[in-house]
Write a protein that binds this DNA or RNA. Sequence first.
DNA 1: GATGTTGACTTGCAAAACGCAAGTGGTGCG
DNA 2: CGCACCACTTGCGTTTTGCAAGTCAACATC
Lengths: 139, 139
Amino acid sequence: MKCLKRSHCPIAFALDIFGDRWSLLVLRDLLFKGKRRYSEFMASEERISTNILSERLERLEGEGLITKSRDKTNRRQFIYAPTQKSFDLLPAILELSCWSAKYDPKTAAPPALMRRIRNDREGFIREITARFTKSTILH
Amino acid sequence: MKCLKRSHCPIAFALDIFGDRWSLLVLRDLLFKGKRRYSEFMASEERISTNILSERLERLEGEGLITKSRDKTNRRQFIYAPTQKSFDLLPAILELSCWSAKYDPKTAAPPALMRRIRNDREGFIREITARFTKSTILH
DNA sequence: GATGTTGACTTGCAAAACGCAAGTGGTGCG
DNA sequence: CGCACCACTTGCGTTTTGCAAGTCAACATC
């Protein structure tokens, strides 16, 4: 995937970073599903292939969206964590989810959650970020 | 590009439709820049290639995000227009823009516009959609 | 401390998508 | 009827993706 920026249009800028079929799914796993390890990302239902996952993690780390560190208790494992730059994507990701929930007749998005996002998006975002400030280093 | 849906996770659903480097730029041209013709999309600064543009227009039409019709006054030209499904993407696109404006040091996004979006997103969305309801058929 | 296992990749290769340039075909104009 | 214009389509070389198999360091067990 290309790294050069095509323009400084904000939409093109975002697409040049995660305008592909996988990057946002990795962020989803990190932000919403509490996944933090390579094997956990691999286990997601969309079946990302291992070389793509490793390339995306590297890219996201390079873009400052995630951090990578060794697990202190088991040095075989690496721990990935979202940065503030990822948290700041939450509004966009949630709006995207609302759109899909509206247009996918078979959506897996729980209606109650979607209602929560529509009615109290900021509160929900604070809740998500709070899950991390309690346990991990962020910025 | 694959058409099958990988899952009914709302994020994956959206990515399966426009999770590539070009689709959202076409929608941007339609929604924000008032472009409606093939040659106008081709003229965008990101330099989409002609076969990719035609494939994306076809896909977006297939997904019900845009409509295609012949220009009444000049039957050589086709007119593309966003549907309600596209308008409903505006919140996500605007949040994405805000994110890029924050993180791209060279962003071309006008600060005044970003302020407007942050302070009166709904009003801005109504303004955008109103540009179309005046002139074209939508749904 | 040799042996096996686990977790995180890396490598190889075929298939798909992309990017560029050149060609095609319907429409309108003189 | 000839020509230009606009919207594609086609060919083809390059890049990215997807799948499978292999590598390698870090434990765990014997």
